[in-house]
Simulated assay, not measured.
Amino acid sequence: MNRRIVVISLETWDGVWRRNQYLVDGLLASDDDTEVLFVEPPTDPLYDVVNARVPRRGRGLRVGGYGGRLTLYQPTKALPRLAGPAADALLVRSVRRAVKKLGWTSGVLWVNDPRAAALLEVIGWPVLYDVTDDWVLADRGNREHARIVAGDGLLLERSEAVVVCSPALATTKGSIRDVHLIPNAVDVARYRIDRPRPADLPSGPVALYVGTLHEDRLDVDLVMRTAEAAHAVGGTVVLLGPNALSARNRERLAAQQGLVVLGPRHRDDVPGFLRHANVLLVAHVVTEFTESLDPIKLYEYLAVGRPIVSTPVAGFRDVTGVTVVSADDFPETVANDLVEWRQSGDHVVVPDWGDRVAAFSEVVDSVARERVSPGVGA
C-alpha cells in the first residue's frame, strides 16, 4: 500500500530548497511506495493588482517528478484575507478538490503553515505538524498574528505528532505537548566538491550572506555598516537569496557602496558561492523569533569550512570555530577577516539530510498508523 502525504508548505517548490523540499526529496528517493502532494502558497491576483503587478493565477495541479510520485499544487486566492473565514473556506475547498482529483482517500496531512489549520476538519487525516519557525513570535499585524496564534494552538492540540527543528522550539512547544526534535542538516558531499568561482561573484575579497532576505531575520542597518567597512578594505558584502525585504530597505541596500544583492540562485549553484567566499556572514537581529530558528545556513556554512562571523543568535553562538560578536563589533571583525584572508578551515562533522529523513520517516509512519476519520473520501 502506498504511503501518501499531503504537505501544506510555506514555500513554493522551486530551485531554492528549504527544509520541506529536502525532507520530501529524501522520502521519495528512499521509498518507491511514497507519493506526495506538495501544496504551495496560493497566488493572490487581487494583491498583485493593488501593488501594480500583473495578476497571476495559481499553476494548479502539475507533475513534479520522481516518476510521477510528486504532484505540485498551487491554488489561487479568490478572496483577500480580510474576507476572513470565507477566504479560508475557498482555499480549503480547493485543496480538498486537488486531493480528490488524485483519488486519494487516506494518508498523512503534513502541515508547515499554521494558517492552514482549517484543513484538519476537512481532510480528516492524521496530522503531522512540522514547526520550522515560531511564527507566533514574528512581528505581524494584529489580525494576522491572531490567526497564526489560533492555528498554531489548534495544530498543537489536534495533531497526532509535532516535529520541531530547534532546541528552543522543543522547549516552548514541548511545554504544551510531546514533540519530536529533528533539526536541519545539509547535503554534505555536495558542498565539499571543488567548483569554479561563479561569474557573478564580485572580484576581490567577499563577505557572503546566504538566505532569504527578510526583516524578521536580517539586520539591514548592520549589513549596510558592514558593507561600508568591507569597502574600506577593498572588499564586498554579497547577499544571495530570495529578497522579501520592504521596498524601502531594498532601495537602501541598492544604494549602498560595497554591497551587491544577487538574488536567489538554484540550490546546485549555492555551494560554489560559499566555497569562493572569504567570510560567511550571519548578520541577524537577536529576537525571540530568531531564538526559535535552526538556520539551514549553519550547516551549509560549516560544510564548506570557511570563516564564519555571526551575531549572537541561536545555533551559531554555540558552535566552536564561529566568531560570535555583538552588532557593534561585527563590521570591524568582518573587515579584519577580509584583510587577513585564510584558506578553508578543517572540515568538521556536519549532520546530513539523510539522517534527518530517516528520523522524519519514522514519525510519518507512526502518524499514518493512527485512525483515519471520514474526510476527503467520505
Rank of each mutant, 00 (worst) to 15 (best):
R177W: 05
A168M: 08
R195L: 15
V322W: 09
V127T: 15
L253T: 01
G354P: 00
E332Y: 06
N249M: 07
G305D: 02
S9I: 03
R275P: 02
V372G: 11
R19L: 02
G84K: 10
G354T: 01
N184W: 00
L91H: 08
D337K: 09
S106H: 11
G375T: 09
V220D: 03
N278K: 08
A168Y: 13
Y209T: 07
L338Y: 10
R59A: 08
A98N: 10
S373Y: 14
N243Y: 05
L61Q: 10
Y47F: 14
A314W: 04
T172N: 04
P42A: 09
A227Q: 04
L137K: 12
G204W: 03
L70M: 02
G60Y: 10
D268L: 13
R217K: 15
R53M: 10
L262Q: 04
V348L: 15
P114Q: 08
R369C: 10
M224V: 03
A283W: 06
H145G: 08
L82V: 03
Y299G: 04
S166D: 05
T171L: 13
L102H: 02
V364E: 00
A29F: 06
T12R: 09
D48T: 08
R369Y: 03
A314P: 00
P351Q: 08
D130G: 00
L280N: 05
C165T: 15
V270S: 08
D355S: 11
A359P: 07
V210M: 03
R3I: 14
S292K: 12
V282Y: 05
Y301R: 07
V223N: 13
I182G: 00
R306W: 12
A89E: 15
T311G: 01
P202I: 01
G321N: 11
N20S: 14
T43F: 09
R267K: 05
N112M: 04
V122S: 14
L82Y: 06
V54T: 15
E157T: 08
P75W: 05
V286H: 09
S30F: 01
I123H: 09
G258I: 10
A230S: 01
A368V: 00
R267H: 14
A170N: 11
E251Y: 04
L302A: 15
R115A: 10
